[in-house]
Design a protein around this nucleic acid. Structure first.
Lengths: 349, 349
DNA sequence: ACGTTATGAGCGAACGTTCGTTCAGACCCG
DNA sequence: CGGGTCTGAACGAACGTTCGCTCATAACGT
């Protein structure tokens, strides 16, 4: 337990009999105008003493911390967690550390978190939290102080956005259901206020329109990204449109709730109701039934965010709208053609 | 985009017409021997200039960063994610920031991550990664440089451990199955090398022994915490002991794989095979069927880790084995009594 | 022998704070 | 009116680095 006091470069230098600046050169700086012999002496002194460079001091003089800040949703949302873990690992691969802040439920503390990151002089910030999509205080901070990259819309713009093609996602999923022969296709969406939601909804409508299908309002139910929200949206859907034979869900997490609600309502998936969702979180394959879903490259998104951010930190000009990452339909078992005959049950009437 | 250069306390002081140390006193330090008038002048100057204190400089002189390091598993494991998110939020509540590092698959980079944290002079470290349970280099670093708290065993000890009662977890789950009337109870475990696994296995054996049941080796199959591993362990179990009527699974994540494999093998849960697992991750309730599971207070574990760590940082002596957190059986639908002499049943409900 | 060039190492300054001490002046008291 | 106390503010130093410049010595070419 006896915690060791950190040893500074001066103590190493003293032990090696050189000036501390010289020791600095061989231990950290690359400017090696030092004889091999003294270098060796310094090195062994450092090792003997257990010297660890003090990054804080270095940051102070270099005015850069090799740290990036990450504002993320309370990561019970696995999709976000995927992206942020990937981002951290990628940042580390490039010699940067990551300081995280997870929003409280509701996300009201976004600005506080960002302010803290700024005071800690992070070199850049990645925002991965749909909740702050409308937070103008956060947007202001992101624009003003450090380079930033966002995974969701930023009010007022000025911050590069990375992400995938959400509209295409909605279209792909819905097209798949249409291709299977469904016509009564509902959707369980994310919160309406979110861009993602609206884009995916557009994709859904695009597909329906192409197939000359109506999009009655009561086929759309709003969720909140949680399984619970997915379940209640589904119940609403079943109540309003008992004849529904297919559902496009805006996230795998919600799809769990959808499957659960359908099961409880006695509807078999995929025989009675087909389900297609999006994200392809790691265990989508292990749900019952395995989820047909549009894969969103979550980890890749996180990595791309880091790349852009590092470029921006390096002073490069980065496009505010880099190309969207491609999505891909993964066919599993949760979507099948509708039963030929009439829908399974006729509760009402 | 025009990034604003950070303004230092000196510029604020100049604008307010005072020495920078005086400005420092009113802006940061609490030692207010300053007239209300000058204080006000300094404050408005700071606001006009958009002054943000430079924590780096402060850390350098105070020799403390108000930052804690968190080494976590590649958080596709939701249980770990729960704990680490809670830890971060709790740390922030106490004015500390969190620097994270997620292990690569396999966890070989543990020591590198910890070394980086140390060089960044974190005030303490929380280790939340089963993979490093046997990593002696990590253990060495944790003991030597900073206060630390671990969520898993540390070779050589010397680091306080927080966590829940794993043996009790195993006992509780198995007892529940026994209580329902099962006698052919298998288990899908975590990796055998892990302490957690062994403890939960002991609990399982305790329960069986108490009930005078045998524990043949072929009722135990090793998993790896992933759904995939859970699924293949289950297939193994079914193959070796077709008569099995109940399974205790060592984590909810694996339970997803177990349910999936049982479903594919045509066994109904809970009618043909009862399943009880542990963790109670947020969506355990939304699996099909809803999972009966032993709740492990994951978030609470993260918070407790932070508390202990902060106490340790404050110089307090903390016990190496604080009391284990209590676990609790959550009964849902995935475990039912075994079929007796095949009492006539309707289809699925 | 002399100036020129490498080479190896030292040294002062700066980064933006906090901390403790010093100092000038106002005020009070006898 | 002299000496003490109190108040407000200035000031020097330190934290552990990096950076650029200076300097002594040795090596070299002519």
């Amino acid at each position: 337990m006896a915690q060791r006091k950190y040893v500074s470069i001066k103590e190493v230098a003293a032990r090696a009999g050189v000036s501390f600046q010289t020791a600095g050169k061989v231990l950290n700086g690359g400017d090696v105008r030092v004889s091999a012999e003294t270098a060796q002496r310094i090195l062994t002194a450092a090792k003997d003493l257990g010297y660890r460079p003090n990054t804080i001091a270095r940051s102070l003089v270099q005015r850069t911390t090799a740290t990036i800040g990450l504002v993320a949703s309370d990561a019970t949302d696995i999709a976000i967690a995927q992206a942020s873990v990937a981002a951290e690992q990628e940042a580390r691969r490039h010699g940067h550390s990551v300081l995280v802040g997870h929003l409280a439920a509701g996300g009201a503390d976004g600005a506080d978190i960002v302010r803290t990151l700024i005071e800690r002089r992070v070199d850049g910030i990645i925002a991965a939290a749909p909740e702050i999509e409308e937070d103008t205080r956060v947007a202001e901070l992101l624009r003003q102080y450090v380079p930033a990259v966002s995974l969701q819309a930023v009010p007022g713009g000025g911050v590069p956005l990375v992400g995938s093609n959400h509209r295409e996602t909605g279209r792909l999923a819905t097209d798949h259901l249409i291709g299977l022969g469904h016509t009564a296709i509902g959707t369980v969406t994310g919160p309406f206020r979110r861009r993602v939601t609206r884009s995916r909804l557009h994709g859904y409508e695009d597909a329906l329109r192409n197939a000359n299908l109506e999009t009655p309002e009561d086929l759309v139910a709003e969720g909140d990204w949680t399984p619970k929200g997915g379940a209640s949206a589904t119940r609403l859907l079943l109540e309003r449109s008992p004849g529904i034979t297919a559902i496009f869900v805006h996230s795998d997490m919600m799809a769990m709730g959808v499957l659960s609600a359908l099961f409880q309502a006695g509807r078999c998936v995929p025989q009675d109701v087909a389900v297609v969702s999006c994200d392809d979180i790691p265990f989508a394959e292990y749900l019952t039934p395995p989820l047909t879903t549009v894969r969103v490259p979550l980890a890749e998104t996180g990595r791309q965010a880091v790349h852009l951010l590092l470029r921006s930190i390096a002073g490069e000009q980065v496009p505010e709208r880099p190309p969207l990452l491609p999505v891909e339909l993964i066919v599993r078992a949760s979507a099948a053609p509708p039963r030929k005959a009439a829908p399974p049950r006729k509760d009402n009437e």
